[in-house]
Simulated assay, not measured.
Amino acid sequence: MSLRSLDAAYRAMEGIAGEIVVVDNGSDDGSCEVISAGIEARGWAEGTRVRFAASGRNGGFGAGNNFGMGLGLSDGSKPDYVYILNSDAFPEPGAINALLEHLERTPAAGMAGSYIRGEDDVPHVTAFRFPSMASEFEGAVRTGIVSRLLRRSIVPLPMPETPTAVDWVAGASVLMRQEMLDQIGGFDERFFLYFEETDLCRRAEGAGWQVWYLPQSRVVHVGSVSTGMKGWTRTPGYWFDSRLYYFTKNHGRFYAFMATLARVMGAAIWRVRVAISSKDLGEPPHFLRDLISHGIASVLRRQSDGGPGAGDPLREEGK
Results as ranks from 00 to 15, higher is better:
Gly171Pro: 08
Met111Gly: 15
Val169Phe: 00
Asp188Glu: 08
Met265Asn: 14
Thr106Gly: 02
Leu200Pro: 12
Glu161Trp: 05
Asp199Ser: 13
Ile84Val: 10
Met258Ala: 13
Trp270Ile: 06
Gly64Thr: 06
Arg4Cys: 01
Glu33Val: 03
Arg4Asp: 11
Leu100Tyr: 02
Ser293Trp: 03
Glu161Gly: 15
Pro79Gly: 09
Thr260Leu: 11
Met13Ser: 11
Ile39Val: 12
Val22Asp: 02
Val23Asp: 06
Ile154Thr: 01
Ser55Cys: 05
Glu205Thr: 15
Ala204Leu: 14
Ile16Gln: 02
Met111Trp: 00
Gly59His: 12
Thr162Tyr: 05
Asn25Phe: 06
Asp199Tyr: 09
Ser27Glu: 12
Val169Asp: 09
Arg263Gln: 13
Pro123Arg: 15
Trp212Gln: 10
Trp212Val: 13
Arg234Lys: 14
Phe192Pro: 06
Thr164His: 04
Ala41Glu: 15
Gly30Ala: 03
Ser74Asp: 04
Val146Met: 09
Glu33Ala: 08
Ser87Phe: 07
Ile116Pro: 00
Pro107Tyr: 02
Ser2Ala: 09
Tyr238Ser: 06
Asp241Ile: 05
Gly231Met: 00
Asp290Gln: 12
Thr227Gln: 02
Pro308Asp: 15
Arg4Gln: 13
Ser74Arg: 08
Asp88Pro: 10
Ala109Phe: 03
Glu317Asn: 09
Ala262His: 11
His294Arg: 08
Gly43Trp: 07
Arg151Met: 01
Asp29Ile: 00
Phe247Thr: 10
Ala256Phe: 00
Pro156Cys: 00
Arg315Phe: 02
Ser31Lys: 03
Arg203Pro: 08
Met69Thr: 11
Ala207Cys: 13
Arg234Val: 08
Ala204Thr: 14
Ala41Pro: 03
Gly139Cys: 03
Val264Thr: 08
Arg142Asn: 07
Ser132Thr: 15
Arg42Val: 12
Lys279Gly: 13
Leu6Trp: 06
Gly171Ser: 08
Val166Lys: 02
Val272Pro: 04
Val82Tyr: 07
Asn250Cys: 02
Arg117Met: 14
Gly185Trp: 07
Arg49Gly: 10
Ser36Trp: 00
Ser87Gly: 13
Ile116Lys: 14
Ile39Phe: 03
Phe61Met: 13
Met159Asp: 12
Val272Cys: 10
